[in-house]
């Protein structure tokens, strides 16, 4: 279990397609719901508690047990009511696998799994633990939209990083909760959602001009 390997997997510079996704933030920015660092704080806390927790639990579960990949993938379909978000998750899973396969051997996870399943599978291939996969997932759930916020709103990047630092303990806590449940049956794994993001994603997918893919 190499810490440097974990950092590599969690690095925003990993060429895994994430830069083109705002995790639902662009729709909320355009709707005027997120305008400031304080608003972003609320958005990211919500993200950690819902999608972040789900991603972390599924990434940990996928890391722990390769025989569950297909079931976990179906479980994420069931937890992602928006077709646009299902496409976005699979597109990011595919891109992550492309990057990951260049680094570690991973087989049998399919061409376009949901992103958390891809992340868990890669973490396993890299010799990381389920707990580390969960941290990477929770960390990605907030650093992705934080970076999108800097680009969309021109927020002060230092203040955004100060916010991420304040959220780090909560990120660790969510990852711990997630990892502790990674052996649960798929139907028992976390299923928290954010309906406004689902609706926003469907709306966003119809725009003629958008900066982010989701």
């Amino acid at each position: 279990m190499s810490l440097a390997t974990l950092l590599l997997l969690a690095d925003g510079r990993l060429p895994s397609g994430g830069h083109a996704h705002s995790a639902g933030l662009e729709a909320q920015v355009t709707a005027g719901r997120v305008r400031s660092v304080a608003d972003l704080d609320g958005f990211l806390r919500g993200k950690l508690a819902t999608g972040g927790l789900v991603s972390a639990a599924f990434a940990a579960a996928a890391c722990a047990d390769a025989t569950r990949w297909a079931d976990l993938d179906a479980g994420l379909d069931a937890r992602t009511p928006s077709p646009a978000l299902r496409r976005a998750s699979r597109a990011q899973g595919r891109a992550l696998l492309r990057a990951g396969r260049a680094m570690w051997p991973v087989a049998g996870v399919g061409r376009e799994p949901h992103q958390p399943v891809a992340l868990g599978a890669l973490a396993a291939a890299a010799g990381l633990s389920p707990g580390q996969a969960a941290v990477a997932a929770a960390h990605g759930a907030i650093t992705g939209p934080a970076s999108a916020a800097v680009r969309l709103l021109g927020l002060d990047p230092y203040r955004v990083h100060a916010l991420l630092a304040r959220l780090a303990p909560e990120c660790d806590r969510i990852a711990e909760v997630a990892a502790s449940r990674s052996g649960d049956a798929v139907d028992r794994l976390p299923a928290s959602g954010a309906p406004l993001l689902d609706i926003g994603a469907e709306y966003h997918a119809t725009w003629e001009v958008r900066l982010f893919a989701s």
Binding site: P15, H19, A20, A95, R210, L211, A213
Partner: peptide, 21 residues
């Protein structure tokens, strides 16, 4: 069509995954 998240140069240089896909 590929979407580039505010950074057209990133999608052709640093993270080419969406274009390769």
């Amino acid at each position: 069509a590929v979407e580039t998240g505010c950074c057209p140069h990133t999608a052709i240089r640093d993270d080419i995954s969406a274009n390769l896909d």
